[in-house]
Design a protein around this nucleic acid. Structure first.
Length: 279
DNA sequence: CTAACTAAAGCACCCTTATG
DNA sequence: CATAAGGGTGCTTTAGTTAG
């Protein structure tokens, strides 16, 4: 279904011309890019008529001047309804905020919408498409900072003049499709986990994890949780960015704070256990 | 072989229901 | 109304299985 999605890259001065583009006056999401005095910024938006909404983004209203827009619409009617574009907008906002590469011009965090697991799966695949497209187009919205210490340590001794790369783009091959979404809900815990085709288990931004950890939690995971808090990846028991795990159990243990079998703990939208679904 | 992962047994606590 | 019985949940522990 997302195969019907269309992306447009529109410079501000060509906005008038873009009125004639197919499907531009339909529901969709968009990103506005620009530069402030010292920082690159982006605005994440959503509209039932993207063209109309874009033309409302004027400097006197916004207090900033964008110079390029990326628009994501669909050629299939009803593909992107209000709830879906809201979901995409919220998710994009969270992801961009987590990576901190761009200043976000949104005044408030967009609200989330509740959708069926199947729909979320589809939308997560659109998110992955958007990640890939923005990366190919050169917007480093979702790249991750490399650990500078590590790079330095690996450098040969005589390479003081070598430029140390600050950011490294995620290789495209790493951007795999989401296969399934699972949930883990219990007292004080409400987490979402995406399993991609790499077999990685990604606990998503906004997941609420347990407040306490117990003795049974392996030391490694206790440490992992501590460092995640230190790095600001966990704030008030909520994940502020996606965290990836190599097994369902590790992800589940991290989330609930005790030793638990991930294949049983994670359930899909129909209440089926992960172990059953991925058998 | 070792470490990590998973399954399963069992304990403790809490909530609900039955019974005197 | 009080207490006992029963069931469910959260958690720990142990042991078997798999991957590196």
């Amino acid at each position: 279904m997302y195969k019907s999605s269309i992306t447009y890259k529109i410079p501000k001065d060509k906005l008038g011309l873009s009125a004639e583009l197919d499907y531009i006056a339909t529901p969709g999401i968009y990103l506005l890019f620009g530069k402030d005095a010292r920082e690159k910024f982006v605005y994440v938006g959503e509209a039932e008529d993207v063209y109309k909404r874009l033309s409302q983004h004027t400097p006197d209203k916004d207090n900033y001047l964008w110079d390029e827009a990326l628009v994501f619409v669909s050629s299939k009617k009803g593909d992107l309804d209000k709830a879906r574009i809201k979901y995409l907008e919220n998710r994009l906002y969270d992801l961009i905020a987590a990576h901190k590469n761009y200043l976000l011009k949104n005044r408030n965090e967009p609200s989330n919408s509740v959708l069926s697991a199947a729909t979320e799966e589809t939308l997560e695949n659109i998110i992955l498409d958007i990640k890939q497209i923005t990366e190919v187009l050169g917007y480093k919205l979702f790249t991750t900072e490399n650990n500078p210490k590590r790079i330095k340590a690996n450098l040969p001794t005589n390479s003081s003049q070598t430029a140390i790369p600050k950011k490294v783009t995620e290789p495209l091959t790493k951007l795999k499709q989401a296969r399934y979404i699972f949930y883990l809900k219990e007292k004080g815990v409400n987490a979402k986990c995406i399993v991609d085709t790499n077999g990685d288990y990604i606990v998503t931004v906004g997941s609420v994890i347990s407040k306490e950890v117990t003795k049974s939690l392996p030391d490694k995971l206790k440490k992992m949780r501590k460092t995640a808090v230190k790095q600001g990846k966990i704030k008030a028991n909520r994940l502020t960015e996606d965290i990836s795990f190599k097994s369902a159990s590790t992800a589940a243990k991290f989330v609930v704070g005790y030793s638990i079998n991930g294949r049983k703990a994670w359930k899909d939208g129909n209440g089926r256990e992960l172990g059953e679904v991925l058998a």
